[in-house]
């Protein structure tokens, strides 16, 4: 008999290295750095605990993202924490001013638009991949990206 823990960890590592990164990026885009990172950690912890079941589910990454959303909601709902992006602490003082302006604009977008826009424009994800992660139709992603981009352009007064 071989060691099951090792190989299960291997498989989970593969999930984390690919889908786990997407989940973290999506949650950070939606809820900001602090809450998004915490929610991603909590969601992946749940995924690790329930991996035996999640691994035989359809679209496990989307499922883990939804767990992350449920873990983030108490922060958003009860503490009314604002979405925080880099630029508000000394550790990010070296971030380009134009990028900081973009973060300021992104903060003002509806959460779903911001999430879809960051995944597509910052990370180059396909609309299909974002749709499966967020659990929405592809065309919804298309609309969210289009509207989000329009708002960002208006907020930044960019005409390109």
């Amino acid at each position: 008999m071989t060691t099951p823990e090792r190989t299960v960890a291997d498989e989970f590592a593969r999930f984390v290295a690919d889908a786990g990164v997407s989940v973290r990026r999506a949650l950070v885009a939606r809820y900001g750095v602090d809450v998004g990172t915490e929610a991603a950690a909590a969601a992946l912890a749940v995924a690790w605990e329930r991996w035996a079941q999640i691994r035989i589910m359809d679209r496990p990454a989307g499922y883990v993202y939804r767990i992350g959303q449920s873990r983030a909601r108490p922060h958003v709902r009860w503490r009314r924490r604002a979405v925080q992006f880099p630029g508000e602490s000394a550790t990010t003082a070296d971030v380009n001013a134009e990028v900081l302006d973009l973060f300021a604009a992104l903060r003002r977008l509806p959460a779903r638009e911001r999430t879809a826009l960051v995944l597509v424009k910052s990370y180059g994800y396909s609309h299909r991949r974002v749709a499966e992660l967020l659990g929405v139709p592809d065309t919804t992603v298309n609309n969210l990206v289009h509207r989000g981009l329009q708002r960002v352009r208006a907020l930044l007064e960019v005409t390109e």
Binding site: P86, V99, D101, L106, V118
Partner: peptide
Amino acid sequence: LDQRFVAAGDV
């Protein structure tokens, strides 16, 4: 703007 988005992702 495209470059800003990519840089934001890196940040």
